[in-house]
């Protein structure tokens, strides 16, 4: 009986991991044309990490790195061919050109920090 409960708890835990990390779609921060979105780089995450932008508009991202770990040093937008180093406790401005509809990921070199631009 005990074992059955433990097994059920284990399976629920696995289901929760799958749901929480892979299935759940976090809410986006909405930005409009000419907006400046400030992204804090701290404690292993970008905040906000999910940003929604209308297609064919221009926005500016301001990365403020508060995290000293070397992992946080770079931010890379692979689809946009952008890679910038982020100085500690300073703001790095990245102006994005007009984008077509789609999802554009941004992450650190090791993909531990992850974020996504949703162009809608």
């Amino acid at each position: 009986m005990n074992l059955l409960v433990i097994n059920i708890i284990g399976l629920v835990l696995i289901a929760l991991i799958i749901y929480w990390f892979w299935i759940y779609k976090p809410k986006n921060v909405r930005a409009k044309d000419q907006d400046i979105v400030k992204i804090i780089v701290e404690d292993g995450v970008y905040q906000p990490a999910h940003i929604s932008v209308p297609a064919e508009t221009e926005i500016t991202l301001e990365f403020e790195r508060k995290d000293e770990t070397p992992c946080a040093e770079m931010v890379i937008f692979p689809e946009l061919d952008i890679s910038e180093s982020l100085p500690i406790n300073k703001t790095k401005t990245i102006k994005l050109k007009k984008l077509k509809k789609g999802s554009y990921q941004f992450h650190c070199q090791m993909q531990m920090y992850k974020g996504e631009l949703h162009v809608v």
């Binding site: 990390f21 759940y24 976090p26 404690d43 292993g44 995450v45 905040q47 990490a49 531990m112 992850k114």
Partner: peptide, 12 residues
């Protein structure tokens, strides 16, 4: 780091 990532639906 773990807690903030968790809240953000990511893990590292």
């Amino acid at each position: 780091g773990a807690w903030k990532s968790f809240k953000n639906h990511s893990a590292n």
